[in-house]
């Protein structure tokens, strides 16, 4: 505030005094730079001033926790330190060293990446296909599909996971009975357990993709689509050459969202595979971090995993945005 006032003053004063004193050509070289710099100064800080309230909230809600997370990841901080049984000590990169030398971490990381990629691809595929379907069907089936999707969307993750586990229960589940699988246990094998969780994740996250993409398609001028169909473009061709390029900004947002969500999957794995599956075969990073940080009270190691996840997601997002921008798309 103070800065603003002093910057504004020199601007106002010379303007009034300059014509009054003398028409001599001496003062102008002195005043214009000052006026110019004062003006630029003001415009440089004004946006930040307006942004300040939002930035303060963001800093308090985002930066501070991340800062704490980072700080804890460099300390020896377990339950004994929290409750004062032992002093907190600085460990440097010790937690990261422990983490990176743990072969289980690399296994879990690989599983997380593959699982998240499968989830993203399937979710986008299903979501986009159903969005296109929505534009092609009559009002009543569209309403039914919308309601079903919104129902899936509105279901809390814990409830959804529990219901899915029950549906696929080896003894009482209707799915096994319908498919004639007998007492096949979905959660026993590593791949079948991941597949089961993938179905649930896709089920609860495709509605977001579907609704967003559907809204995007609706916003495409009908003349363009008409022109495409007049040119004899097939359904697939229309999607690939007309709709998808026009939807690119939306698809980018939806993809990044999905990557972040699916990389951070927690509830589904935790509930459906009972905390990581038989002998930890279905652990993903987030559940692994939880097991380390909270189940066994190694808060500092859990924080280190959190920081690693944060960096991975930031990198993925930045690389993705970069790729998109290079293709000439400004978000």
């Amino acid at each position: 505030m103070k800065h603003e006032a002093t910057a504004a003053l020199p601007k106002a004063v010379p303007e009034k005094t300059a014509p009054a004193t003398a028409p001599a050509p001496v003062p102008p070289p002195v005043t214009p730079p000052e006026r110019a710099s004062g003006g630029r100064h003001g415009s440089r800080w004004t946006p930040w001033l307006y942004l300040a309230p939002a930035l303060v909230v963001l800093a308090a809600l985002l930066v501070y926790p991340i800062y704490q997370l980072g700080l804890i990841s460099f300390l020896e901080y377990t339950q004994a330190q929290v409750s004062g049984g032992e002093p907190t000590t600085f460990k440097g990169l010790g937690n990261y060293r422990t983490l990176f030398s743990d072969s289980q971490f690399w296994e879990v990381l690989l599983a997380t990446v593959v699982f998240a990629a499968a989830c993203v691809v399937t979710t986008l595929g299903v979501g986009c296909a159903l969005a296109v379907l929505l534009t092609r069907v009559r009002a009543l089936p569209r309403l039914a599909l919308m309601l079903a999707a919104l129902g899936a969307w509105a279901t809390p993750a814990v409830t959804g996971s529990t219901v899915w586990v029950f549906l696929f229960d080896p003894d009482h589940g209707p799915v096994n009975r319908m498919l004639g699988l007998g007492d096949f246990s979905w959660t026993y094998g590593r791949h079948s357990a991941f597949a089961l969780v993938l179905f649930e994740v896709v089920w609860c996250s495709f509605p977001f993709v579907m609704v967003t993409v559907y809204a995007g398609i609706k916003a495409i001028p009908s003349e363009v689509l008409e022109a495409a169909s007049l040119d004899g473009a097939s359904q697939w061709r229309t999607w690939r050459s007309v709709i998808a390029p026009m939807l690119r900004p939306i698809l980018i947002v939806v993809t990044i969202q999905s990557i972040i969500w699916d990389f951070k999957v927690f509830t589904q794995i935790y509930v459906m595979t009972a905390g990581g599956g038989i002998a930890g075969q279905n652990l993903v990073l987030n559940v692994y971090a939880y097991q380390k940080a909270f189940a066994s009270s190694q808060y500092s190691l859990g924080s280190a995993i959190g920081i690693v996840m944060l960096l991975i997601l930031l990198t993925v997002t930045l690389v993705y945005l970069r790729l998109m921008r290079r293709q000439g798309e400004e978000l």
């Binding site: 800093a59 930066v63 704490q68 929290v82 907190t88």
Partner: peptide, 19 residues
């Protein structure tokens, strides 16, 4: 903004209770 947040935050290292 980050630095500022960092400066205000350094005052609060993770808590330890006195039992």
């Amino acid at each position: 903004a980050f630095v500022l947040a960092g400066l205000t935050a350094t005052a609060c290292a993770p808590q330890t209770a006195a039992n």
